[in-house]
Computed example of a mutant assay.
Amino acid sequence: MVADSPAVLVERDRAEPAVAVVTMNRPDRHNALTVELKVALRDALEAAAADPSVRAVVLTGAGRSFCVGQDLGEHAQTLRAGTEFTTIEEHYNRITLAIAEAPKPVIAAVNGTCVGAGLGFALAADLRVSAAGATFSTAFAGIGLTADSGLSASLAHMVGVARATELLLLGERFTAEDAAAWGLVRIAPGEAIEAALELARGLAAGPTLAYAEIKSAVRFGAVNDLRAVLANEDRGQSRLVATADHAGAVEAFLAKQKPTFEGR
């Protein structure tokens, strides 16, 4: 696991050490994404995804915001210097893939403002728990850019092409209540991080091999035809039916006992 850095904190949940909590840690700047933060976040998420002792991940932001996207002050310096624009490939794409393709559940705890790439990261997660007062926006068009961090696909898949286009073109702010009505988030009754941790603890005790297959199958199913989807499901089931977790869960069901999942 990556050690703590000024920009990103990586901790294990005390109640369930199999849950890793990754916190973007620039609260004074609403977790705006500098190169330092992007590199630390990318490395922390990739390490958590690869660590077999981590069975669930919670991604959140320190302070009053989840993440407001790119730090435009640093970005302006890059533009003035004429530096080659490589941050999408080096940072945003890898962060998004580390979240979406992690072979374990990733939960975004949206504690406040969630904008631009921050929204992309949240939508790349498998589940999103939002504070009641959180606000959201795409924001890209307002600075003359298109979406990044997979937002053009994730938003369209979740809310439909028409609404996604509207949100991206107009960049209008929407509330946690709007997001919940559209199926993007569940609103926490209290602190978002506590609700996210409760979900993560339950998932960490669950069938992580099945979760990995489910995540992969949903991504595949979103962009392929029915015959390909059925063939992919067959492959996934064939892999899982040979696992000790599946055999043990079937025996536990027949014995009217609670199954124990060990990820094998």
Score class of each variant (00 low, 15 high):
residue 181 A to N: 09
residue 226 L to P: 05
residue 48 A to P: 00
residue 148 D to E: 13
residue 220 F to S: 01
residue 204 A to G: 10
residue 247 A to L: 12
residue 98 A to D: 07
residue 230 L to R: 11
residue 176 A to N: 01
residue 149 S to F: 07
residue 135 T to C: 05
residue 150 G to A: 10
residue 233 E to A: 13
residue 24 M to V: 00
residue 121 F to M: 14
residue 239 R to D: 01
residue 198 E to S: 12
residue 22 V to L: 03
residue 164 A to F: 13
residue 65 S to N: 03
residue 43 D to P: 01
residue 65 S to P: 00
residue 116 G to A: 13
residue 109 A to E: 06
residue 241 V to K: 09
residue 182 W to T: 04
residue 138 T to N: 05
residue 240 L to A: 01
residue 157 H to D: 11
residue 73 G to Q: 07
residue 256 K to V: 13
residue 23 T to R: 10
residue 51 D to V: 02
residue 47 A to S: 11
residue 31 N to Y: 00
residue 7 A to T: 10
residue 261 F to R: 11
residue 170 L to H: 14
residue 93 N to H: 15
residue 27 P to L: 00
residue 182 W to C: 02
residue 136 F to Q: 00
residue 250 V to H: 13
residue 263 G to N: 11
residue 80 R to T: 11
residue 127 L to G: 08
residue 121 F to E: 07
residue 136 F to W: 05
residue 148 D to R: 05
residue 12 R to E: 03
residue 128 R to H: 09
residue 98 A to G: 08
residue 6 P to M: 09
residue 102 A to S: 12
residue 90 E to N: 12
residue 259 P to A: 07
residue 93 N to A: 15
residue 56 A to P: 03
residue 13 D to T: 01
residue 83 T to E: 13
residue 225 D to L: 09
residue 56 A to R: 02
residue 125 A to M: 05
residue 112 G to W: 00
residue 6 P to G: 10
residue 139 A to R: 05
residue 7 A to K: 07
residue 125 A to Y: 02
residue 259 P to I: 07
residue 215 K to A: 08
residue 246 H to T: 14
residue 16 E to V: 06
residue 97 L to R: 13
residue 214 I to A: 10
residue 126 D to K: 08
residue 154 S to A: 15
residue 84 E to H: 14
residue 242 A to T: 08
residue 189 P to G: 05
residue 171 G to D: 06
residue 104 K to A: 13
residue 200 A to F: 08
residue 190 G to V: 01
residue 228 A to D: 14
residue 138 T to I: 04
residue 194 E to Q: 09
residue 244 A to L: 14
residue 254 L to N: 14
residue 211 Y to T: 07
residue 34 T to P: 06
residue 77 Q to W: 11
residue 38 K to H: 06
residue 182 W to E: 09
residue 36 E to T: 08
residue 45 L to W: 04
residue 11 E to W: 10
residue 15 A to F: 03
residue 14 R to C: 03
residue 53 S to I: 01
residue 81 A to S: 14
residue 13 D to H: 03
residue 149 S to R: 02
residue 59 L to F: 04
residue 70 Q to N: 12
residue 234 D to K: 08
residue 1 M to Y: 10
residue 82 G to Q: 10
residue 134 A to I: 00
residue 244 A to G: 15
residue 115 V to A: 07
residue 130 S to M: 06
residue 125 A to S: 14
residue 28 D to P: 00
residue 159 V to R: 07
residue 76 A to W: 13
residue 140 F to A: 02
residue 187 I to Y: 03
residue 253 F to M: 15
residue 135 T to D: 03
residue 83 T to H: 14
residue 255 A to H: 12
residue 259 P to D: 07
residue 166 E to K: 13
residue 192 A to D: 00
residue 55 R to P: 05
residue 103 P to I: 09
residue 122 A to M: 08
residue 4 D to S: 15
residue 106 V to M: 12
residue 247 A to P: 06
residue 196 A to T: 05
residue 133 G to I: 02
residue 231 A to F: 02
residue 248 G to K: 09
residue 145 L to Q: 14
residue 14 R to Y: 02
residue 175 T to A: 01
residue 19 V to Q: 00
residue 198 E to M: 04
residue 24 M to D: 00
residue 83 T to L: 15
residue 257 Q to V: 01
residue 64 R to W: 01
residue 46 E to I: 03
residue 47 A to R: 02
residue 122 A to L: 07
residue 215 K to F: 07
residue 108 A to N: 06
residue 159 V to Y: 09
residue 117 A to R: 11
residue 168 L to T: 12
residue 245 D to N: 08
residue 196 A to R: 04
residue 147 A to P: 08
residue 99 I to G: 04
